[in-house]
Amino acid sequence: MTLKTRLIPCLDVKDGRVVKGVNFVDLRDAGDPVEAAAAYAAAGADEICFLDITASHEDRGTLLETVTRTAMEALCPLTVGGGVRSADDVLALLKAGADKIAINSAAVRDPSVLTEGAMAAGSQAVVCAIDAKNVAPGKWEIFTHGGRKPTGIDAVEFAREAERRGAGEILLTSMDRDGVKTGYDLELLRAVTDAVNIPVIASGGAGELQHLSDAVTEGGASAVLAASIFHFGTYTIEEAKRAMQEDGIPVRVTW
């Protein structure tokens, strides 16, 4: 009788196709997002995450259509992020079938968008996505634009502000670790999970199953997000959950 640690496969979606960027630069095509999401849900994924990296905001229709088709197929919660700028964007994605909306750059520019999103859809639907880089021992700075643009904002402080502003969850990505498979930045994770009382999703760096457990036991994460280790068939969802279970982490048993 306990809340399970969530395992979340993340699909980077561009123009309606799945890609996985290694350090957000070297993109590879890994298939149809709707099929992939349905397969993950059937395999026991606790949640699915889509991050839309389509460059142009004008191509929003493709994403909405992908979200709608996915929501029809996958009977588990769907989080969608990328290019969300306003409460209207939040509502449009919810209407398309998403359950939670991740807001990244727009929240960094003006955190009141988190409040507006929470007022319109409830805090449970608003995820604040934070992309952080280690800039000094024990210091992490928020970067936007796929990790290219420094903001001067302290990631841990910003996580606190996001909670205060109405975010119901934090999706924390280490830009140093993203795509390099050496494990999550546990120090960053611990600093943020200690700073807030809302759930924190660990992201960026999962390369081995041990990394998933470490994010929970050492980093304090409520959920772990991973992409490439699942997309390229290195591990299955079940293998990942069994490994976490062996480490004493409560998981939703789906086998």
Binding site: K4, D46, E169, N197, P199, S222
Partner: peptide, 13 residues
């Protein structure tokens, strides 16, 4: 003291 919201999969008994 647990994190709020209660978010995720939990046992229904």
């Amino acid at each position: 003291g647990l994190r709020v919201p209660h978010m995720g999969w939990n046992d229904v008994r």
